[in-house]
Every structure is written in C-alpha cells, then in structure tokens.
Simulated scan of single mutants.
Amino acid sequence: MKNTLDDNKPIFLQIKEQIEDSIIDGNLNAGDRAPSTNEFAKFYKINPATAGKGINELVAEEILYKRRGVGMFVTENAKEILIKKRKKSFYESYMLPLKMEAGKLRMSTDELIEMVKREDNE
C-alpha cells in the first residue's frame, strides 16, 4: 500500500488503482487474497465503506471475487482484463491526441514512428 493518499482524486479510486497496479505489477497474482476493506480503513484511517466502494468496483469488473468469511481474491483473468483496459485507456488518452497533433504538423506515420523509436539523448 502507498503511504499516503492524494487529495486530488477520490479515495475509493485510489484504492481501486492500488489493487489494479499490484495485479499488473505481479505483486498480487491469480488466487491471491487482496487487502480487505478493514485493512485499508485501518491503514489510511478512512471509513471502511470508502475502501469497500473501490473493492466492489473491482468485483463488478471481475477482477476480484468474494469468498464468504475469507476475503476478496484475484480472479484468474484479472491481469489480462486490466492490461486490456489500460491499453484502451492509453490509446484514448495518449495516442489519439498524439495522432491529432501529428496530423496538424503534417507528420507522416513513418515520421511519428521514428520519433517514438528515437533515443532520449538525441
């Protein structure tokens, strides 16, 4: 868990993203138990319902599943689902604006690809 929360984003989203990042990074794998709402609440000194909201969204997205009396666990396909979702978001947030700007500058696809391949020190 991160040490602090960001005031600029809803807490439940930050908790959701922390779990997602842990799955993508391999810190939580299929079948692993995810931190509970009470663990998040105690660690961040927040209402358990706030943490629960983020966790429940992950259940709705089939990233986590509940085992009654035991906790929340990572689904078999969680990592693949998250990577697919993040790639779509990456494309929409970064690639589409990049392509639009490249079009304004009359850059060819080849020029754009060369810029992506270029080393930082050039």
Rank of each mutant, 00 (worst) to 15 (best):
M72N: 12
T50F: 00
F73Y: 08
L82M: 12
K99C: 05
I113H: 00
D7L: 05
D6V: 02
K117P: 08
I46N: 09
E101A: 09
D6Q: 10
I11K: 11
E122A: 04
F43W: 13
N47F: 06
K2T: 01
G71M: 15
R106H: 02
L5P: 02
L82F: 15
A49Q: 10
F73H: 02
Y44R: 03
T37G: 09
G103I: 05
V74A: 01
Q18T: 13
E101Y: 12
E61A: 01
D6N: 10
R68L: 11
D32P: 03
L98D: 15
I83K: 12
P97G: 05
A41V: 05
E101N: 15
S89N: 07
R118K: 11
S36G: 14
E122H: 00
V70R: 07
D7R: 14
E111V: 05
Q18I: 10
L13T: 10
E92K: 02
K84I: 01
I81M: 15
G26N: 04
A78G: 07
R106Q: 12
K53I: 03
Y94L: 01
K88V: 13
E119W: 13
L5R: 02
K53G: 14
K104H: 10
G52C: 04
A51G: 14
D110E: 10
I24W: 06
D32Q: 00
K84N: 11
N29I: 04
P48Q: 07
E111K: 05
L5H: 05
G103F: 09
G52V: 07
S108C: 08
D21Q: 15
G31I: 02
R33C: 14
G26D: 06
E20G: 07
T50V: 03
S22R: 08
K66E: 01
A30Y: 00
V74F: 00
M95V: 15
N8P: 07
D110M: 15
K45D: 12
A30N: 04
P97L: 00
E111W: 00
F43A: 09
K88H: 10
F12S: 04
K85Q: 04
L64N: 06
E17M: 13
P97Y: 04
A30M: 01
I81R: 09
M72F: 04
L98M: 14
I55K: 08
R118E: 14
L112W: 07
L112D: 15
G69M: 15
G31Y: 03
E111A: 13
M107T: 03
F73W: 01
E57Q: 09
E61S: 08
E80A: 06
P48N: 14
N77C: 03
V116M: 12
E101T: 10
L13D: 08
A102T: 05
G71K: 01
L105F: 07
L112Y: 05
L96N: 06
A102P: 11
A102E: 08
I81A: 04
I46E: 12
G54Y: 01
D6F: 13
D120E: 09
A78S: 02
E39S: 14
M100W: 04
F90Q: 10
L28R: 06
